[in-house]
Amino acid sequence: MTAAVQLPSAPEIWPEAVPYWQGAADGVLMLMRCLACEEHYVHPRPFCPHCGSNRTEWREAQGSGTIYTFTITERAPVFKVPAMVELAEGPIMMTAIVDCEPAEVKIGQPVMVSFCPTDGGAPLPVFRPA
């Protein structure tokens, strides 16, 4: 089974992304959504990268998605299965798959968000098999 054997370093928190990391601390994946084109997007910024509108809001994501792609890095000190997950809301985000047998991970596999503690900072969103 894979789990973080060493804590990842604490993320640097930009002022525009505070709700993302506060959400992570509370066990919630936060996403930004554009009120003009109604698309969700990553990464957080106070304007929409799709249409340019600055009418945006924070939303709680469902926390579910499917694996878009992944790799297996057996010798990595923290995460053995870096991945990209396609969220139920649409955006694809970089992350890692945990609590899994790397050899059994598949593209298209349903996953749920989880949170990995960091070295003295906000936790990182990761995903585990649903």
């Binding site: 790799t71 000190p77 923290v78 870096p82």
Partner: peptide, 18 residues
């Protein structure tokens, strides 16, 4: 984008592996 990617420690091999 670094805070949203760095923590997963994706060096070039992992990125291209994906």
């Amino acid at each position: 984008e670094q805070p949203f990617e760095d923590g997963y420690l994706m060096g070039p091999p992992a990125l291209y592996g994906m």
